[in-house]
Design a protein around this nucleic acid. Structure first.
Lengths: 196, 196
DNA sequence: TACTGTTAATGACATATGTTTGTTTTTTTA
DNA sequence: TAAAAAAACAAACATATGTCATTAACAGTA
């Protein structure tokens, strides 16, 4: 059996993917070259291929890692017995935290998925559709239980997810607004608009 | 003097930019090649350069056209004497209509601006910052006049603009929700969250 | 018909791209 | 310390890129 890692607990592959996440976010997947990536990793471009199979594989890893985190969190929320309003708040906060703490991954998953090769692309879009559908179901339930005001669930989900993903522009800004204010204000805005 | 146009009232340059808008939206600026563009225009790649100066110039034209429309609309709203809440509703509706009617342009302006060459890039970002600042000012005024609930204006603007730009994903979808429902639901959601 | 200005096509340029091959160096294992 | 495995390298590949120079087609006017 192989002694897995040397430094820290991240394999070289993980390092490559981490660096790639930042690079892809900064320049976009298409505009970021393998030679760019090699440079930030501190290696020649050809050497990358000892650890990964293709540029696209890196994108897959990033996109699906982010997607899986959202899905598994949703599952735990669905299994809980909180009110629908509280469920939505929990989910919104989770999305915000992901935007704050795993910005690169979430950003790429949000914006660069179109460069995924098939069949990963279809797979990704299916997961996404299903995720949104399940959020919509929570809102539908909230309306039926009279916890939420009458609103189109599809549009509500769209609005919430888009709003949160706009935190991207806060990340790029000089951040004169603190992360705390950002979170509480956005949650307040999105929940008030939902609450009956 | 030259007889300007043959067909319709759009110059070849305008046709190129129109086709490019669609192409850039579908494939992304970086992944869309001049040869791709030439094909949809129905001409050889090199011939495009009789009408435009560079690929980047096309992007500039698209981004600034969209930006200018938003700015000049904002100016007319600022000059009006409606309530702050009504002003914001007007602006939100305008953004939604832009997403519905000029989807390609707005989308590119939203997502591909980072490929603008300097000094256009700085210019664009300045305009954007200023635009958002002015929206924030309307909200601040609304709070002072007790027309809106206490909320961080920066975050409110961020939330609103991001939410609207999420209509992109509706555009790409099978549109089982009508444009009318989309507009009224989103306006309701965003205004309710603002109203005192 | 000949002239003129505009646009298109051809073919090429220099460079950049993702990736492979073959080889050497470094690290791990025995 | 020697053998084996893993990782890095240099060089090259085939192709794609934005763009330019030159030349040919073609319209409208005289």
């Amino acid at each position: 059996m192989a002694k897995i890692q040397s430094k820290k607990n991240s394999s070289k592959k993980e390092i490559i993917i981490e660096k790639a996440a930042r690079l892809f976010r900064e320049k976009g997947f298409g505009a970021a070259s393998m030679r760019d990536l090699a440079e930030v990793v501190g290696v020649e471009a050809a050497s990358l291929y000892n650890h990964i199979q293709s540029k696209a594989e890196i994108l897959q890893a990033i996109c699906f890692k982010a997607a899986n985190e959202f899905i598994s969190h949703l599952e735990s929320v669905e299994a809980s017995s909180e009110s629908t309003l509280k469920k939505m708040e929990t989910i919104i906060r989770f999305h915000i935290h992901m935007m704050l703490d795993h910005y690169e991954y979430v950003y790429i998953s949000d914006h660069e998925w179109r460069h995924l090769p098939e069949p990963y692309l279809s797979n990704f879009l299916n997961q996404r559709r299903s995720y949104r559908k399940r959020l919509g179901d929570i809102i539908s339930e909230g309306i039926h239980k009279n916890e939420m005001k009458q609103i189109d669930p599809y549009v509500a989900v769209l609005t919430i997810l888009s709003a949160v993903s706009g935190i991207e522009s806060w990340q790029r800004s000089r951040k004169s607004t603190s992360a705390d204010v950002l979170e509480s204000s956005m949650v307040k805005y999105l929940i008030e608009g939902l609450k009956k």
